[in-house]
Amino acid sequence: MKIGIISDTHTKVQMAKDALNFLIENGAEFIIHAGDIVEVEILNLLKNCGVRYIAVYGNNDAHLAQYHGKYNLVQEPHYFKLANSKFKLMHMPYYMAPDADIVVFGHTHEFESDYKNGTLFLNPGESCARNKSISECAMLEVTEPTLLVTYYTKERKEDTFKHQIFSYERIKS
């Protein structure tokens, strides 16, 4: 299963739209937003992107609580099963215990893909290109033997995404 992951979209609706469209065009079957959504328009993009999604509140999302029932918004840490894997979704990297197969987080605005003792810790970086000149997102492909992370970057003024691939052999428990 291919899972598109974005985070820290903040007020950059067009950058969020570009990342979502890119992930879906490249086969994402599910979208995860790791918080700091900020704009209701971004929630609408998620809701209408054509695939299932989940989004966690970030530290800049308290004002979105009024829309909780209209969108698939969750509080951190949120656990769920997808692709025969246990996920933990959060924005703030406070709950970094390896108590899931895959831990998705945001907040730091820095890409991270680290496989430790059977747990993948994944931060897609910032979609908003606020702290650097690139918009970032990731695709996670979950199969039984491997976890394949593709990290995408796009310069603010460019139309195309560049990528790096990280592959991890899953540890059987």
Rank of each mutant, 00 (worst) to 15 (best):
I24L: 11
H10W: 09
I24C: 09
E144I: 09
G118K: 01
K12M: 13
P98L: 08
V56H: 02
L140E: 01
H68N: 12
F80E: 01
I171S: 11
H68A: 12
K172M: 11
F111T: 04
T9S: 15
K88N: 05
L147Y: 07
K172Q: 08
F87Y: 10
S133F: 06
E112H: 02
E29S: 10
N84E: 08
K132Q: 09
D101K: 07
P124D: 11
F166I: 10
N131T: 03
M96N: 00
A100C: 14
K12I: 00
E110R: 15
K132N: 15
D99N: 12
Q75N: 09
H63C: 03
V40P: 00
V104F: 08
H78A: 03
Y53Q: 05
K154H: 06
L45W: 04
I3K: 03
E41M: 03
H63M: 07
S113Y: 02
F161Y: 12
I5T: 00
V104K: 10
N44A: 07
D61E: 11
E39Q: 15
T143W: 02
Y151N: 11
E25P: 00
L120F: 07
A65W: 02
L20Y: 00
N21W: 02
E158H: 11
N59K: 01
V142L: 14
F166L: 15
E110Q: 13
R170K: 15
A100Q: 08
K17D: 01
N48P: 00
E112I: 09
Y152F: 15
L122I: 13
E155D: 13
R130E: 13
L82F: 00
K116E: 06
N117L: 10
L82T: 01
V51C: 08
E110N: 14
S127W: 02
T150S: 13
K47E: 00
Y57Q: 03
F22M: 13
F80M: 11
G69C: 11
F161I: 11
K86C: 04
T146W: 03
A55S: 14
V104P: 03
Y94F: 14
G58I: 09
H68Q: 11
L43W: 04
V74K: 10
M92V: 04
S173I: 15
A16D: 00
D114H: 14
S135D: 01
A34F: 10
E144W: 05
I32Q: 12
V149D: 03
V51M: 03
Y151A: 14
K81A: 08
N60S: 09
F30Y: 13
I102F: 02
L64Y: 01
E110M: 14
S85F: 00
T9C: 05
K81N: 12
E29I: 10
I31M: 13
K81G: 05
Y168N: 11
D101W: 06
E110H: 14
D114M: 13
Y115Q: 07
T143G: 12
E155Y: 11
S135M: 07
K47F: 04
H91S: 06
G50T: 05
E112D: 05
P98G: 13
T143A: 08
V40Y: 06
L148M: 15
C49R: 00
R156V: 14
A138K: 02
S113D: 02
Y95H: 08
Y57S: 05
D99P: 07
D8C: 07
T11N: 07
C49E: 04
I24T: 14
I134M: 10
I5A: 05
E158A: 15
I54D: 01
S113A: 15
V38R: 05
K154A: 10
V51S: 02
L45F: 01
L147R: 03
